[in-house]
């Protein structure tokens, strides 16, 4: 009996593992290999050793893309989490038509981010300036997306618009794990409003808080669709996200080898961030 089980398991595992290795591990290894060459994506190539990596650290365009992507990820995460927390509290409290509201607020998340980006592109280029013109707000009179220092805000708004839904849902399920007795005990002690939130609610949903942070930052670091739809990396190359740069310069620009090195660094960064966050949050959870 036991052998039959073992054999079946092996027969199942081997092909699936092979599939995984073929389409995940091997490309990863090939990517690392290419990062040491000057491959253009076609034709012949030479081994160049660490030249790509050295170039990476002196290339202003790459540096700019990391700065932009991190700035976007951090700010959007904060904005999204704050707003989502508020929304979750609101959607969890005593209001009518709860499921209608939840359904409506989740809507942005299921829409394709490319099309959402195109819609907001039109909004930022034509509608917002028209409104600003009418109401007289000078700062918004010209398109947000044509200003190198403000274009990232446009991207952030679109990312947040879609992400708030998911994060709110996570917080709601977090809030629902708090048993009613906790609140009742708090009521007896006279805890209300902010105090109630800070000492009762928040500590109990910290696990969900950390999930959200990890997911949010990781997701926003990989932003691509919105860049394609809104700015194509401009203006003045101020909104080139890391993924977009790798695709644009690596696949269309013929800098396969160089951007493979960029991708390797990116991979290491993502792993480092996820690992660090998990460590941080498990320590926090223990403390509580």
């Amino acid at each position: 009996m036991k052998d039959e089980k073992k054999r079946t398991y092996l027969l199942i595992t081997i092909p699936i593992l092979a599939l995984f290795i073929c389409f995940n591990t091997i490309p990863l290894l090939r990517g690392v290999y290419y990062s040491f060459t000057n491959f253009r994506g076609f034709g012949s190539y030479d081994w160049v050793g660490l030249r790509n990596y050295i170039d990476l650290f002196t290339d202003a365009r790459v540096g700019k893309s990391y700065w932009f992507t991190f700035k976007l990820a951090v700010v959007t995460t904060v904005v999204v989490n704050v707003i989502s927390m508020l929304m979750a509290l609101a959607l969890n409290s005593r209001i009518p038509a709860k499921s209608f509201f939840r359904g409506a607020y989740f809507l942005p998340n299921i829409l394709g981010s490319l099309v959402v980006g195109y819609i907001f592109n039109y909004f930022f280029t034509y509608i917002l300036p028209a409104f600003a013109q009418m109401v007289g707000i000078d700062a918004l009179k010209s398109s947000l997306l044509s200003n190198p220092s403000a274009a990232w805000i446009g991207v952030m708004i679109v990312c947040a618009w879609q992400a708030i839904a998911m994060t709110t849902i996570i917080y709601i399920s977090g809030l629902q794990t708090i048993p009613a007795d906790v609140y009742e005990a708090g009521d007896i002690d006279g805890a209300t409003g902010w105090k109630k939130f800070r000492y009762l609610t928040f500590p109990l949903i910290v696990p969900f808080f950390s999930i959200n942070m990890v997911l949010s930052i990781k997701n926003f670091l990989m932003v691509f669709d919105q860049i394609v739809a809104l700015t194509k990396g401009g203006p003045a190359q101020s909104t080139e996200s890391i993924s977009y740069l790798i695709y644009n310069n690596g696949m269309s620009g013929g800098q396969f080898g160089f951007q493979s090195a960029n991708a390797v660094i990116f991979f290491i960064v993502i792993v480092a961030i996820s690992a660090a966050q998990m460590k941080l949050s498990s320590r926090k959870e223990e403390q509580l």
């Binding site: 990517g31 994506g41 670091l221 990989m222 790798i246 696949m251 493979s260 991708a263 991979f267």
Partner: peptide, 13 residues
């Protein structure tokens, strides 16, 4: 943890 960005070019090939 492997982002698509690092897989995309080798996979294309």
């Amino acid at each position: 943890f492997v982002p698509f960005a690092i897989l995309m070019m080798p996979l294309a090939k």
